[in-house]
Write a protein that binds this DNA or RNA. Sequence first.
DNA 1: TAAACGATTGAATGATTGCTCAATTGTACA
DNA 2: TGTACAATTGAGCAATCATTCAATCGTTTA
Lengths: 127, 127
Amino acid sequence: MKPTSPDSGDSECCNYEEHDDKIRMARKNLPEEEKLLEISDFFDALGNPTRVKILLAIMDVELCTCDLSAITGLSLSAISHQLRILKDRHIVTYRKDGKNVFYRLDDRHITDIVNKTLEHLGESEGR
Amino acid sequence: MKPTSPDSGDSECCNYEEHDDKIRMARKNLPEEEKLLEISDFFDALGNPTRVKILLAIMDVELCTCDLSAITGLSLSAISHQLRILKDRHIVTYRKDGKNVFYRLDDRHITDIVNKTLEHLGESEGR
DNA sequence: TAAACGATTGAATGATTGCTCAATTGTACA
DNA sequence: TGTACAATTGAGCAATCATTCAATCGTTTA
């Protein structure tokens, strides 16, 4: 049995000219699994409307859990759960002040990436 | 009953000074729901290891479904399903050539965004 | 110290996702 | 025309996800 043979250099199908070369090259250039997961985890963290709302809201002002609950119309609990995901992925960070916890973006890069995306989506508008 | 009152300007909790102002401002600046979904859908499309593999693989060379199956070690069907998601989100595009279908990135912006992310993740390495 | 408040947590649940499998489509070429 | 091959599709299923609810934690202040 040879079902897809993920690790050998040969292919199951598709016998055009540069086929094997392309596969070898592409496979060689792929980052290792851990890095791949890191990348997809990052995007996954931004891939949810509630979390995007949170990110956009704290883009230029720090806000507490309760603010974000009021802004999004979601329960404190729901927001807190989502904030934990964003914290774990190092996308937001926080500062405690008495009973409040204020959140802000962890990194200037996040802003850049989000802006780049807005730009991208903006230019393909009305498609 | 007034459970979170998502659309009124007042808050349920958290009575510090600039609270209401912050909420009003943040809510005003949020894009409308449709735009938000567009943004999160875009990130969501990149938020899966298989789809990230596909994107990285076709970053500088076009590849057919079968190539991508060989590269990732996943079934043709699995790859095809994921490619449909990327097509629907306008992240990849394709060219038919005989029995083969060759995929490539739809847009230069995608490359920029992915590179920006790699840069971001790279700089926070070893945390 | 007790009550109030902002925030977090864990269990539960319905919805969504990613894959496999089997069937099908479309193209090439014998 | 028929067979082979690349690709797509839909059903089905296990795993994951987003939210709610109830309980709890930690800080403030009465």
